[in-house]
C-alpha cells in the first residue's frame, strides 16, 4: 500500500472540497472494501478523507418514509426498531450480507458503493477493463460462474455484490447526495450503471459527490417481503443469485409488487416487467412462476453460469411465494 495523507474534516463542505481540490483523494467511511482494494493495489489514493465525523448517522421516520443516514452502520440499521418495523426486507438483506464484524464496520453509503468481487478485477496480473480500461475482460471467456446474465457488455460481465442494495432497489429507495453544486436525489435504481463501454464506472456519482442518506418511502408493499439468497455456503458468502420480493395484496389480489435481483447484473436488477405482470393478479404459484419466466427474458449465460438461468427464476418464484406467505 502506498503512503497517503489522512484528514478527518468535521464539515461536509470541507470533505467535498478536499476531493474537489485533489484528484487523488478519496472518501473513507467503514473502509471494509476500500482498504481491501488498497491492499491489493486496486486503489491508491494519495489522500484519504475520513468522513466519520460528519453527522450522517441518524435514522428517522416522517410521513414520507424512512431516512437512514449514510454513515449509519449496517448492524445499527438491522437492529434498529424503527427499521425492523417499517422495512423488514432491508433488515433481511442486511443480515444476509457479510458477517457480524463487517456489519459493525460497514456503513450504508459504503455498502452501496462496494465494488465487484470479480476475481479478475482483484488480481492485477489478470486483464480487467473495470480496473484497467482497455486491458480486456478476463471473465468473458474465463471463469465466470459468479457473473452476470443481464445487462452485461463485451467489456465487463461483473456483478454488483451488495445484498442491501438489492433490497433498496426493490423498495423504491432514493439516495440523497451532495456535491460541490449542492444536493440532489437519485432514484436508487438509477444510481448504479450497467458496464457498457465504461465498466470502470460503477455508479453515476461524481467522485467528489458524497452520499448523505437513503430515503425509503412508506409503501403498502413494505410488509409482505422476503429476501432469498442462494450461495455456496450457508453464510459469509456472496450471492450466486438473490431476490428481494415485496408484495401488497388485497383479498388475495396483488395490488403492488416490487422485485429485484442480486448476483445477476452490474447493478441491482429490478424486474419491472414481472412486477407489472403480477399487479392485479391473484396470489398463486402459477402467477409467480409466470412472472419469473417473464423476468428471465433476455438473460444470457456464459461458460460457467448457465445454472443461473434456472436458479434465478426458481429463486424469484420462491421469494414471491415466501413474501406472499404461501407454502
Amino acid at each position: 500500500m502506498n503512503q497517503f495523507q489522512y484528514i478527518q474534516p468535521a464539515k461536509q463542505k470541507a470533505a467535498i472540497d478536499a476531493l474537489t481540490k485533489d484528484a487523488k483523494a478519496m472518501f473513507i467511511a467503514g473502509g471494509t472494501n476500500l482498504l481491501d482494494l488498497m491492499k491489493r493495489g486496486l486503489a491508491a489514493p494519495e489522500k484519504l478523507v475520513d468522513i466519520n465525523k460528519l453527522p450522517l448517522k441518524k435514522i428517522e421516520f416522517n410521513n414520507n418514509g424512512l431516512r437512514i443516514g449514510a454513515l449509519a452502520l449496517n448492524s445499527e440499521v438491522a437492529q434498529d426498531k424503527l427499521v425492523r418495523e417499517k422495512q423488514p426486507l432491508l433488515v433481511q438483506a442486511l443480515e444476509a450480507g457479510a458477517s457480524g464484524q463487517l456489519r459493525n464496520m460497514a456503513t450504508m453509503g459504503g455498502n452501496i458503493l462496494q465494488r465487484t468481487r470479480c476475481p479478475y478485477f482483484y488480481d492485477i496480473a489478470l486483464p480487467c477493463n473495470k480496473r484497467e480500461p482497455g486491458s480486456g475482460c478476463g471473465a468473458l471467456a474465463g471463469f465466470n460462474r459468479m457473473h452476470a446474465i443481464f445487462g452485461f457488455s463485451d467489456k465487463c460481465i461483473a456483478v454488483h455484490p451488495s445484498d442491501m442494495s438489492v433490497a433498496l432497489a426493490a423498495l423504491d429507495a432514493t439516495v440523497v447526495v451532495a456535491g460541490p453544486q449542492g444536493e440532489r436525489q437519485i432514484l436508487f435504481t438509477d444510481l448504479h450503471r450497467l458496464p457498457g463501454d465504461q465498466p470502470e464506472k460503477d455508479t453515476i456519482l461524481e467522485r467528489n459527490e458524497l452520499i448523505l442518506a437513503i430515503d425509503i418511502p412508506d409503501k403498502p408493499f413494505a410488509q409482505k417481503v422476503h429476501y432469498l439468497k442462494a450461495r455456496d455456503r450457508a453464510s459469509y458468502a456472496f450471492a450466486l443469485v438473490s431476490v428481494a420480493a415485496a408484495l401488497a395484496t388485497d383479498k388475495n389480489i396483488i395490488t403492488a409488487a416490487r422485485i429485484a435481483m442480486g448476483g445477476v447484473a452490474h447493478k441491482p436488477w429490478r424486474l419491472f416487467e414481472a412486477e407489472k405482470f403480477l399487479e392485479g393478479k391473484p396470489v398463486s404459484e402459477a402467477n409467480f412462476r409466470s412472472a419469473a419466466e417473464l423476468a428471465m427474458q433476455g438473460a444470457k449465460a456464459f461458460n460457467h453460469n448457465a445454472y443461473k438461468l434456472k436458479l434465478a427464476p426458481n429463486s424469484i418464484a420462491a421469494a414471491l411465494k415466501a413474501a406472499a406467505g404461501i407454502a
Binding site: 478527518q8 473513507i28 467503514g30 473502509g31 471494509t32 482498504l35 484519504l48 464484524q101 459493525n104 464496520m105
Partner: peptide, 18 residues
C-alpha cells in the same frame, strides 16, 4: 476480531488512525 468501543470489528480492515 477485536472490540472497538465494545463492538466487534475486524482490525485488518481498520486503519489505526481512524
Amino acid at each position: 476480531t477485536v472490540h472497538v468501543d465494545g463492538k466487534r470489528v475486524l482490525s485488518c480492515l481498520s486503519l489505526a488512525v481512524m
